[in-house]
Write a protein that binds this DNA or RNA. Structure first.
Length: 287
DNA sequence: TTGTGTTTTATTGCCTCC
DNA sequence: GGAGGCAATAAAACACAA
């Protein structure tokens, strides 16, 4: 915008602290010029209240000079702005009279003040959102770390179990390990172990992850007795296939879900996976 | 002193509302 | 159509480092 102003210092304006053109102002295209002599006469930023009522003060003012409001004027305007940031015509006139300003100047001041307030408000909002985002990010990171840690624990426990199974080939593993081990694992994870009284006669439990080696393998090679684990799994998968409720997920993905939340999980858990279920449903329950 | 960045005052043009 | 609001911008006034 190529605009400049010439401020005409009329006596009428001068007597009323008006170096600015108010409503019905004259404005000119072109640059405002200020000579070296004029600029050397610049006043300090703040004017004393006494000066405000000094005629000479205004007579000294040179034409075309844009003057800042005094601290008193700004203070009063700020107070008024705090009360109400919009300016009705009556209040504008009153303020203008009180401050010795043009109503137009008061209106402009309020306009600019609203703009400054809005900018500050945007900055505050940004800070709040930023803090919230940072906090969420930090929580997420720590959950991801926990998740990784738990996964690796599951893997290492699985490996241990397999090694132990090979070391005692003749041992009837079902007596010694098959029932105790899941409980141990559950204790490590702080899980609650319950019997699956809801399932069809079998007591199953499993610790699994979609992306990691599974504790429960097929009934032929399984370390665990089929009647306790694999069969239960197969039965469950079978029943889901039969009634058409299989949503394509691994059977194991919902093994952890407490019975009362299973239905909910089937509806919502598809996109969440194993860890999503953990987060969504709270501590997993073995059954 | 001077260059540069920031703040303040004011204008312009567009939009909405009555 | 006029009044008033807002965004964008100009330009003066000011602050401050080099």
């Amino acid at each position: 915008m190529e605009s400049g102003r010439l401020f005409f210092d009329t006596s009428a304006c001068r007597g009323n602290n008006m170096l600015f053109l108010g409503d019905g102002e004259l404005s000119f295209r072109g640059r405002s010029m200020m000579s070296m002599e004029e600029s050397s006469k610049r006043r300090p930023f703040f004017t004393s209240p006494d000066e405000l009522f000094d005629d000479e003060y205004y007579e000294e003012q040179l034409p075309e000079k844009k003057r800042r409001l005094t601290s008193e004027q700004v203070h009063l305007l700020e107070k008024s702005f705090e009360e109400e940031n919009k300016l009705e015509p009556e209040r504008k006139t009153q303020l203008a009279k009180k401050l010795g300003l043009q109503p137009r100047q008061v209106a402009v001041w309020f306009q600019n003040r609203r703009a400054r307030w809005k900018t500050k408000q945007l900055e505050r909002d940004y800070d709040v959102l930023r803090a919230s985002y940072d906090s969420l990010l930090s929580s997420y990171d720590s959950l991801v770390k926990d998740n990784e840690k738990l996964k690796s624990e599951v893997v290492s426990l699985n490996e241990k179990l397999q090694v132990e199974a090979k070391e005692i080939p003749g041992e009837p593993i079902s007596d010694k390990k098959s029932e105790a081990m899941p409980v141990d694992i559950a204790q490590i994870f702080g899980m609650k172990v319950v019997e699956d009284r809801l399932s069809t006669g079998s007591v199953g439990s499993a610790v699994v992850d979609e992306g990691s080696p599974q504790l429960v393998v097929d009934s032929v090679d399984s370390y665990f007795p089929a009647e306790n684990y694999a069969v239960a799994a197969v039965e469950r998968v079978q029943s889901e296939e039969d009634d058409g409720s299989d949503d394509g997920r691994s059977y194991f993905s919902d093994v952890f879900v407490a019975p009362e939340t299973e239905h909910q999980n089937n509806e919502e858990g598809e996109a969440m996976g194993w860890w999503g279920n953990m987060l969504h449903n709270g501590p997993p329950v073995l059954f």
